[in-house]
Design a protein around this nucleic acid. Structure first.
Lengths: 248, 248
DNA sequence: CTTGTCAAAGTGGTAATACCACGGTATGAA
DNA sequence: TTCATACCGTGGTATTACCACTTTGACAAG
């Protein structure tokens, strides 16, 4: 069966399949929403004409995919969808496909390029305030790769939130575990470059300025530079050196 | 609990939690791998000192997250991870967040733009052959929005496969259900435009040609036109009309 | 010897009944 | 009014019995 909440049951429907379909319909049709309590097991069993263990099997399945939460003595409650719940599963599944820490950059580039274009069109003043706060945290944590990597991730998550695209946000959340690891590794890799801290902070500031100016093309260009950040910084350092002859 | 195959069980462990942890450990440690059959329910119950219904609840949960497949009369088999299994779950979770059919275009644009750049660099001859075959199917199904929409989706999936990025591929698979719906709706929307069929097929052909030519900038430009396909075609039809006076 | 058929064994699917554990609410006493 | 306790409702589990499906082995026929 698998995570088949939106899939049709087999024609020779078992009791389990019929109950699953019933609950699924309630969820998809909007009759039940986050916070609502399902009918008690005994009542569901009576109403649906099955035994209570079958109900329990369905509820366990729904709980396993994060759709409900079973509370002993209280009942089963519909949960608000949380894409971060998928993160662990996603990470594990990807990990079984071989080395993906580098490849996750491709997904990051894809999502952020589109998100920043949307952010230039859609960002609200409170989105910009959130970005400003995230920038402040990037600045104050820039010396520490671990905390700084997390702050870096948060800045980019705020960018994606400013895009107001639920689909992009959900994809980003699904790969968040891998992205955080990627942010940390990139930070560790570039931390030894002279002057990188100032460059990092200024670059994030320029990204925020482009969004505030609603300049999608500049934002995109800056973002591409951002993804090449170690390479770019070394190129600029070399250019500065060529322009300033040695003073010794 | 949620999709917590990689998460620690609660300390006050129920029978269910203990059994779940036992099976989980077998899976994560590599003792059990895809294709392996779990012990029969009755034997698991005896060995773990719980009743059979508890075992069944655990197995249902594992099946719901796609980790195993329960086969009547045969036993429960460990499954190979399959991102398409996440698709239904993803779709359901997104659907609870309001209208996402239009918004899924943003994710599509993000993924495909990055994928086609990678495809220009990485596509093998067998990727190009697969794209050619997908193009042939687009051509032969172009008159039917339903089947044509599916063929259209398959062409774009072949593009993403040619990128050889597991992360992008998995994200695409996760939103495949929504994308197929989106492809169909777009097809239905433009199906009444005169000459659209030829235009559609030619446009897909040009996309394939750009990938074969390893021309990432052209590919990206063509792709952006592709996403605006209804608008673009109407603009060209108007330009043709302005250039050719009526013959009546 | 090979192939086909059928029955038995093993495995999952379900129902019914009983009882224990937890959480929330209502009632009574201070 | 506040606190403690009892009760009720809900989930967690065990046991027993029986049905449905799949596989394997034995036997018969060619």
């Amino acid at each position: 069966m698998g995570a088949g909440l939106t899939r049709e049951p087999a024609d020779a429907a078992t009791g389990y399949d019929q109950v699953f379909a019933f609950v699924r319909e309630q969820l998809l049709s909007g009759q039940m929403k986050a916070g609502d309590r399902l009918l008690p097991e005994r009542e569901l069993a009576t109403r649906l004409g099955v035994s209570r263990p079958v109900i329990r099997e369905v509820l366990r399945a729904l709980a396993a995919i994060g759709v409900i939460e079973i509370r002993h003595g209280y009942g089963s409650v519909v949960r608000r969808p949380d894409f971060a719940e998928l993160g662990d599963l996603f990470t594990m599944m990807l990990a079984q496909q071989g080395e993906v820490v580098e490849d996750v950059m491709e997904a990051r580039i894809a999502i952020e390029r589109q998100a920043i274009r949307l952010a230039c069109a859609r960002a609200t003043s409170s989105d910009l305030a959130a970005l400003g706060e995230a920038l402040r945290r990037v600045e104050e944590t820039v010396k520490d790769p671990q905390i700084g990597g997390d702050a870096d991730f948060d800045f980019h998550a705020a960018l994606i939130a400013a895009a107001h695209s639920p689909t992009l946000a959900s994809l980003h959340a699904a790969i968040a575990v891998l992205l955080k690891r990627s942010h940390l590794e990139r930070r560790e890799r570039i931390t030894s470059l002279d002057g990188i801290e100032t460059y990092l902070v200024e670059h994030h500031r320029e990204l925020l300025a482009a969004v505030a100016a609603r300049d999608a093309d500049s934002a995109d260009r800056l973002l591409m530079q951002h993804f090449a950040i170690g390479t770019e910084y070394q190129r600029r350092a070399a250019a500065e050196r060529d322009r300033s002859p040695p003073t010794s």
